[in-house]
């Protein structure tokens, strides 16, 4: 859900119809509010912004998505950020579900983590769906 920072209207990505036909939509990071036409910044910020966000996150909340963790971090899967069956069924059928201990092994070019005795590789989009509560800080 996106919220227009000008008029406060809440709308989904699909509702931003005037962006649908635009070939730049994946890169421009903005969505046009369907009610007032204001262009709202939505997409993730650029590299510098992302680095800054990461740094900020280090002191931020305990609940994080797997995508925000650092290599070597351990934690417990606390849930998924979506209940979209298409995505979650995949994860659950692999044996990834809330309550299990997780350890992040690698973040580039894909997220590699260990759950139980098994290692998995996922892309950023899926890593963002997995919510983790950190257990122990890295030395």
């Amino acid at each position: 859900m996106n919220k227009c920072s000008f008029c406060g209207y809440e709308f989904s990505d699909e509702a931003a119809q005037s962006c649908a036909g635009c070939f730049l939509r994946r890169f421009c990071g903005k969505l046009k509010c369907p009610r007032c036409g204001y262009e709202v910044f939505t997409k993730r910020p650029g590299i510098i912004g992302r680095l800054r966000k990461r740094k900020g996150n280090a002191v931020a909340a305990e609940h994080k998505s797997l995508a925000d963790l650092h290599v070597g971090d351990r934690g417990q899967i606390s849930g998924f950020s979506t209940y979209e069956p298409k995505k979650i069924r995949k994860l659950m059928s692999l044996g990834i579900y809330p309550g299990l201990l997780i350890r992040l092994l690698q973040v580039f070019p894909a997220y590699v983590f260990q759950v139980g005795f098994t290692q998995f590789a996922v892309d950023r989009e899926i890593a963002q769906e997995i919510q983790v509560t950190l257990t122990a800080d890295r030395p």
Binding site: K87, K90, L94, T118, A121, V122, E125, I126
Partner: peptide, 17 residues
């Protein structure tokens, strides 16, 4: 990929030892 409509693919895979 630009021309065909549809969702971005997602990647998830088990890594056997």
């Amino acid at each position: 990929a630009k021309l065909l409509p549809g969702d971005r693919p997602s990647f998830y895979m088990e890594l056997p030892p």
